[in-house]
């Protein structure tokens, strides 16, 4: 147990041990994958010159408001907004931030589709984005059935048929308010935030996709796979 009484100068054995540690290896790997200047870059390639690029950030902005207003609604519980004018206002913000979230996310998706933004080993970026969209649809849906009003009664009793037909309804009971509320405020937000985080890290890791090189590439050319792009260090 020499480590407990060592002085500040480390021995070569210690250095060797440290460099083999899981912690050290994970840190080395992470820094290799995402050096700070790539994670939070201060420059972007010169082809970034279109408003279509801001819709990802707008979607994140809307998501932040969804989470914040959802937290305010949580402070007083699911019945608050029916009886309080402030609660109703926060609920209105929650609803409109969801509408804007999908509005911006779908435009972001269209934009990335027409840029074929999956090119150059960016397939996983597209995949995490598409999965985030699908999970968000579920998160919004569980919100609609957690409203405890006519709308939630109606949506739940209508949606049960589709979900029951797949057999999933036996475990994911849309008529069970307690279960739907938990999915809405715990499980699905955690999923959306985790996937969004992963998506952003992947964008930063590979950088934004370069334009098609019209006329430059022909089919006989070969490609170096596994190349990464980012900002220059």
């Amino acid at each position: 147990m020499t480590t407990l009484e060592h002085d500040t100068s480390s021995s070569p054995e210690e250095d060797a041990e440290v460099s083999k540690q899981w912690t050290t290896r994970i840190r080395r790997r992470l820094v290799e994958m995402l050096p700070p200047e790539r994670l939070i870059p201060d420059r972007q390639p010169s082809f970034l010159s279109s408003w279509i690029y801001i819709f990802g950030a707008l979607t994140i902005g809307a998501l932040a408001i969804i989470i914040l207003t959802g937290m305010v609604l949580s402070l007083e519980g699911p019945g608050w907004w029916h009886t309080s004018s402030l609660g109703l206002f926060v609920n209105s913000m929650h609803l409109w931030s969801v509408e804007l979230f999908f509005f911006c996310m779908v435009i972001h998706l269209w934009g990335k589709f027409f840029m074929a933004a999956w090119r150059g080993s960016r397939q996983l970026t597209w995949i995490t984005g598409a999965v985030t969209f699908l999970v968000s649809v579920g998160a919004a849906f569980t919100g609609y059935v957690s409203q405890t009003n006519f709308d939630s009664q109606w949506i739940a009793t209508q949606a049960k048929d589709g979900i029951n037909s797949t057999g999933v309804g036996a475990f994911f009971n849309v008529l069970n308010f307690g279960q739907m509320l938990m999915w809405h405020i715990v499980l699905l937000p955690v999923g959306v935030l985790f996937l969004t985080g992963l998506h952003i890290l992947m964008v930063r890791r590979r950088g934004i996709v370069p334009p098609f090189e019209d006329g430059v590439n022909d089919k006989s050319a070969t490609v170096a796979s596994g190349t990464q792009e980012g900002t220059p260090s």
């Binding site: 074929a116 999956w118 090119r119 050319a221 490609v223």
Partner: peptide, 8 residues
């Protein structure tokens, strides 16, 4: 082979 829909 370079595929413009996959590679950059």
């Amino acid at each position: 082979r370079f595929n413009p829909d996959r590679d950059v």
